[in-house]
């Protein structure tokens, strides 16, 4: 087992996976808090079209993903003010971008395996160059998130009050979407477009079920995504199945266990108590 670590591609995989896990654990907390799971999912698919488009013009897939997701983040942020109304906008952008992806794929038929790599993740093909880009964007994201932490938390939990206090809610929202776009682009490298959700949303959602304290939840969410990524990679090197499958299963199991703990801990009569950030809406589903 230790022998494997000597190979440079294995070291790169672990490094990239760990950096991405830390970023997504942190950013993911706010994705869950702000209810932007769907936006996150859409951004990852937009990254798919970006990566294929980049292949068409001969650029690297990370560059294509950065450009496409950033444009989409600004667009989504500008289109809708309130999240609840953005559902349709996000869906429309998503379906259009998937169509673009199909177009690029049909033009660029040479590299079908490349497309599969973008869809399902190709952590074992991460180069030292990619690790540097991922590390650079990771440091950038974490520093900016730390700077924005307080106003963003305020704006996420009580947007109206924050706005009244002079917090630039709309601008913060666009800025956060841009950071999310960056995080999605680097996460695609590790788990692929279809499974970005597993690192960006699932650990944070599990953590949110275990505690309401923001810092504790963020720490837990980072721990869950780190554990899942490292364990998933180890399993992938020992076993025969793809790394993204192990990572996704592990984070999902963390979520289901957190769900059970949450259900056991809170007696039924307390369940309807509104969390400050949570509007309790009628059970429409």
């Amino acid at each position: 087992m230790i022998d494997i670590l000597r190979h440079s591609f294995v070291q790169n995989a672990f490094l990239a996976g760990m950096i991405v896990a830390i970023i997504s654990g942190f950013v993911g907390y706010f994705v869950v808090l702000r209810g932007q799971a769907f936006a996150c999912e859409a951004l990852s698919h937009i990254g798919f079209a970006g990566a294929l488009g980049a292949a068409l013009v001969g650029a690297s897939s990370l560059e294509g993903m950065f450009i496409f997701t950033l444009l989409a983040a600004v667009g989504m942020g500008a289109l809708g003010k309130r999240l609840s109304g953005r559902d349709i906008e996000v869906g429309m952008v998503l379906s259009f971008v998937l169509g673009l992806g199909v177009l690029f794929l049909s033009i660029y038929t040479k590299n079908a395996t490349g497309a599969v790599g973008v869809l399902f993740g190709s952590i074992l093909s991460v180069t030292i160059n990619d690790v540097q880009v991922i590390l650079g964007s990771g440091v950038f994201i974490i520093i900016l998130m730390a700077v924005l932490y307080r106003p963003l938390l305020f704006a996420s939990i009580e947007p109206e009050v924050a706005e009244a206090r002079g917090v630039p809610v709309q601008r913060l929202s666009i800025l956060f979407l841009i950071l999310l776009a960056l995080s999605v682009s680097v996460a695609v490298k590790v788990v692929g477009v279809l499974l970005v959700f597993a690192l960006l949303v699932v650990p944070a959602a599990a953590a949110e079920h275990l505690t309401h304290r923001p810092w504790l939840a963020i720490t837990l969410s980072i721990l869950i995504s780190l554990t899942s990524t490292i364990a998933g990679l180890i399993f992938a090197f020992i076993g025969h199945w793809p790394a993204s499958f192990y990572i996704v299963s592990l984070t999902s199991w963390f979520y289901f266990i957190a769900l059970i703990i949450h259900a056991v801990r809170s007696p039924r009569r307390y369940r309807e108590l509104p969390h400050p950030s949570r509007e309790v809406l009628p059970p429409s589903v």
């Binding site: 209810g35 799971a37 499974l195 597993a198 589903v285």
Partner: peptide, 27 residues
Amino acid sequence: GREVRERDVATGVIMTFALGLGILFLS
């Protein structure tokens, strides 16, 4: 997914879990 905000996350977790299985099947 009883709560609206929780619903998206729950939907997403189920989707991711299924997709993980899908990737396994494909491999």
